[in-house]
Write a protein that binds this DNA or RNA. Structure first.
Lengths: 335, 335
DNA sequence: TTATATTGGTTAAGCGCTTAATCAACTTCA
DNA sequence: TGAAGTTGATTAAGCGCTTAACCAATATAA
């Protein structure tokens, strides 16, 4: 591999000049620029990133950290990547992705890169507020933004769907479609999220003049199997729900299976409303209606927020809630 | 952030000693090691990766490059990551992930990191042999291994499922289950792959004493919609197939929808056999039988192969084919 | 006792860049 | 004509590590 010295020699200039040309700074004459360019091409030169990073004190890359749990991908990872990539393309930042396996202590794999400054900033996606990585980032004074979690404390920047509004909208919508007995099933992860969901849920019921049932939310782990079991149990009760708000695509899969088990037809006997913008939804049978805040918007906001942090702009709003919308498909019987 | 100088001062030794302690090399007394350790802890020191990389000439990280196309995730990305992670955990290599968006020229985003030596090696997953990135890696003399593609030329190292054997096994299996009119639908990507599939497909038919039909393989883009249309067209023919080998999970989704459109019951009227080990398969209705070579095995092999390349071990077999297996679920009517 | 290893470090060069400071050669202007 | 910019470079220090080479002190062997 050729170095900046080779290029300098080839072009008959000093390495400083080469550096200035490559970075478009300094005062260099057009002829010299051209000579350097040609030398670069001829030698097929590309600056070594480690050297650049060491000299500059930053790496010009940001990392997206997300769980590798497969069904989470469906929850819009690619849309987020797309959006972040779009924003970063305007800058000279690059995007690294750290997918964390679902193993105990897997978070530690982030320690070396973060504290060793492999990146300038981090976007944490679908990572719980209490996750040790949050503290890691804070202690390492690494700028970061969370996606898909709403913080309770004021000092953690995040972009999230307005899940309270989501729950409200979901219930509202189902109710208006004629489904009056509504349950939520899914993995809420944290108490804070559960509470926010219940808030929206009960709020919607109340404004419809209905009481807020106990056990409105059925918490299951992320796997479709668990959701299937839970849904089956609920759907066998006397006063079984006729509308289910399923909090992830894997929950939807479970609920669909449960409905099939019990010979319930969707949407005739049971409405299923998904959460998030899973690419799976249009392709299940029947296609799944869903409520969600745009992942693309969240990705964009998060990226921009992080970039602002780099300019240590303190005047920015650190907490962004994306308003939800409904996509109507066939699992909820459009009136 | 503290540097190695701070640690050296704190421990009362030279920076060389600190470096030796941290890397477990050199000859250092237990007492000195302890002192350095304490200084490291006290100052919360972590070596800056850029400095380390520059001094050592390598970064101790390898990159997994894969398309960000969402349905591809299902084809085992997380299993591959898991497997690679498992292998790398034994070493001191770290795994970076570069997800390439489905945009023209998106491959160029790999140019800077690769030529700038941000990683020591690359694993290319589900990337075509003719992809410009292959040439990029070769020109940059960056060690790499491909996953999920079989090379025709001898000089490109790869790990892939034995797709010829997959097709053969698929047909064989369907045939034995009583499905005699079999079609393949999916995105083959390259002519080489199509040919290999046909080879296995027709081989199996021939050994069953059947002729090899024209149009045995229906090539569609990766989207479920296209697969749905194609499947619907095929299933409306006079002599419609009663068994379909669907080459990806998104194809399976399309075929399932098509069957539903035409009121065909799976597996009674139509058997559907998926390809690859998608986590989706167990959760569709009915659960999807599939044939595939283990993604975990592929990931492991690829990682080990790459590590061997680092020791420029030339004596290694560069081409690995993983033998396929069948997972029987309910979409193919177990006899 | 003297030559020879061994132990436990230190020294300093080098990795390949960036960039502030500097400088020589021209212009411009009073 | 000389002082003051301006242009287009060069110089050299520094980023934070690694590591070969070296060295002093102590242990071992002849």
């Amino acid at each position: 591999m050729s170095t900046i010295y080779d290029v300098a020699r080839e072009a008959g200039v000093s390495i400083g000049t080469v550096s200035y040309v490559l970075n478009g700074r300094g005062r260099i004459s057009p002829e010299t620029i051209e000579r350097v360019r040609q030398a670069v091409d001829k030698l097929n030169y590309q600056p070594r990133q480690a050297a650049k990073a060491l000299a500059q004190g930053h790496t010009n890359s940001i990392a997206l950290v997300a769980p590798a749990k497969i069904y989470d991908y469906q929850m819009g990872l690619s849309k987020v990547i797309d959006a972040i990539g779009g924003v970063l393309a305007q800058t000279d930042y690059r995007l690294l992705i750290h997918l964390t396996l679902d193993r105990p202590d897997a978070w530690r794999e982030l320690e070396e890169p973060v504290r060793g400054r492999q990146m300038d900033g981090v976007i944490l996606m679908h990572v719980a507020m209490q996750d040790p990585r949050v503290e890691l980032l804070q202690q390492a004074e690494m700028p970061f933004v969370m996606i898909g979690r709403t913080a309770d404390t004021g000092d953690i920047p995040y972009v999230d769907a307005d899940i309270e509004a989501c729950a409200q909208l979901a219930v509202d919508y189902l109710y208006r479609q004629g489904y009056q007995r509504i349950s939520m099933i899914g993995e809420t992860g944290e108490a804070a999220i559960t509470n926010r969901l219940l808030q929206g849920f009960c709020g919607a019921l109340k404004s419809a003049g209905l009481p807020c049932p106990p056990n409105a939310i059925i918490n299951v782990s992320g796997s479709p199997e668990e959701a299937r079991k839970a849904a089956r149990a609920v759907l066998q009760q006397d006063d079984r729900p006729n509308g289910i708000f399923a909090l992830s695509d894997s929950t939807v899969l479970g609920v669909y299976s449960a409905a099939h088990d019990l010979n319930l037809s969707i949407p005739r006997d049971l409405a299923v409303l998904g959460y998030a913008d899973s690419p799976l939804y249009p392709h299940l049978i029947p296609p799944v209606s869903a409520v969600f805040g745009s992942m693309a918007e969240m990705g964009e906001e998060a990226a921009e927020l992080l970039l602002l942090k780099f300019d240590n702009d303190t005047s920015i709003k650190d907490q962004v809630l994306i308003p939800p919308a409904i996509v109507e498909r066939e699992s909820t019987c459009p009136a």
